[in-house]
């Protein structure tokens, strides 16, 4: 299969707003596609359509060749999602949270394996068995990453995942994405962070008012050129 994530004329209208204007997009395995755009540009709407959280007005989203709305449960076997602010069950430990989500995804790991996933995602080993209610945003984000990695998903959907992370954690996160990409995971990341997009992305898309106005290869231009181009579109 050539594309693991695909949008065909994907359109979403709300009563008073056109949120997405016929998006066409294909992403191959191992590719990192970064979607840049202002708040309200349609980035989260696109992710929510791929997740099946909302229904398209017309067109279709495909994950691993399956049309999302018709295979709502099946497609979730192939995708993982990290929202901007990962929220977990506060009364459970990091270990229990990961065990729960992995189990729901069909993976029943041993405790040592779960701990390994969490530590590899950057969570301090002594925090693994502490309740999540005492975690910082960054720690929760790392558990979110561990959940996504442990799922062995073909597609990773990220909605501004580095928002609120410190530079070190953000950098570690980028390295992790590159590792996953090298293993063949297709990554679709909505972000405001132009430099991060340029750093990890294979391609960068610019979205404005629900429309994908440009798609660029990251090897074609440097970060400053990308920023200029982006700002031009925004104005």
């Amino acid at each position: 299969m050539e594309f693991v994530l695909e949008a065909k004329h994907l359109r979403k209208e709300y009563q008073d707003k056109l949120a997405l204007k016929g998006l066409d997009l294909q992403i191959k395995p191992g590719e990192i596609f970064c979607l840049l755009g202002q708040n309200g540009a349609g980035k989260s709407t696109t992710i929510n359509l791929f997740l099946g959280f909302i229904q398209p007005t017309s067109g279709a989203a495909f994950i691993n060749g399956l049309e999302v709305t018709r295979n709502i449960t099946k497609v979730k076997e192939f995708l993982a999602y990290i929202p901007e602010n990962v929220m977990l069950y506060p009364n459970l430990t990091g270990l229990e949270n990961l065990a729960l989500f992995s189990s729901l995804a069909g993976y029943d790991y041993q405790e040592a394996e779960i701990t390994d996933y969490l530590v590899r995602a950057g969570l301090p080993a002594d925090a693994v068995k502490r309740r999540v209610s005492g975690y910082s945003k960054g720690m929760r984000q790392k558990v979110g990453i561990a959940i996504a990695v442990a799922k062995h998903a073909k597609v990773l959907l990220l909605d501004e995942p580095t928002s609120g992370l410190d530079p070190k954690a953000s950098n570690e996160f980028s390295e992790l994405l590159l590792q996953l990409s090298a293993q063949g995971t297709a990554i679709f990341m909505a972000t405001h962070d132009i430099f991060r997009a340029k750093e990890v992305g294979t391609r960068v898309g610019i979205m404005r008012e629900g429309e994908l106005v440009d798609v660029l290869g990251t090897t074609d231009l440097n970060a400053n050129e990308l920023e200029k181009l982006y700002l031009n579109y925004m104005h």
Binding site: F53, K76, Y81, P83, M87, Y89, F101, G144, L157
Partner: peptide
Amino acid sequence: EQGTLPLLLSQPIN
């Protein structure tokens, strides 16, 4: 309210 719904709904579960 605690924000766990998106993660939960992104799992292959009805």
